[in-house]
Amino acid sequence: MLDLVFLISGVGLVLSALNVALSTHPVRSVFSLMLSFMFTAVMWLGLGAEFLALALIFIYVGAVMALFLFVVFMLNVDHLPRALPRMATLFMLGIIVSGSVYLLLEHSGWQAELRKVSLNEHTRQLGLLLYRDYWLWAEVVACILLASMVGSILLVKSRSLSQKND
């Protein structure tokens, strides 16, 4: 059952990621990216990362992607022609890299099955770890988030200020 979930979400992730990369329409790209985040979240739930899965959905799909969508709408970017001649080269390179990773893994003969997980204790342990061992980094990240918030507000707001000055 779980295998099926992994299979579906894996295939879905690859397909929606391909659509993100290939779609010529930005809005479609945004929705595909949302879809791929959803598939990732499902996969993470299966791997025992329930807190991060929910964070991914709430924060990414809910907030960050909404921001993307908003910007895409606001900027009114049409779908633009892409550089077709390079497509073939890029895909060749991509297939070479993926294939060699596959070969590497096969070659190494490393086998490790995923562990069964229980979905009740991880959030608490994560919190303890975050606020006891990594509290300094949590503070640093908080500062970065604050700085980015202030920065983006200033960046966008300075337009109205400069317009007033004009």
């Binding site: 550089a83 390079r86 890029l90 390179l93 991509g94 890299v97 060699s100 990773v101 590497l104 070659h107």
Partner: peptide, 20 residues
């Protein structure tokens, strides 16, 4: 950007060769 992407691929390939 095209050159940057090529650089990325190059780096990945170098890494893989190192692993082999």
């Amino acid at each position: 950007i095209y050159e940057y992407v090529l650089g990325l691929f190059l780096a990945v390939i170098v890494l893989l060769v190192g692993l082999f």
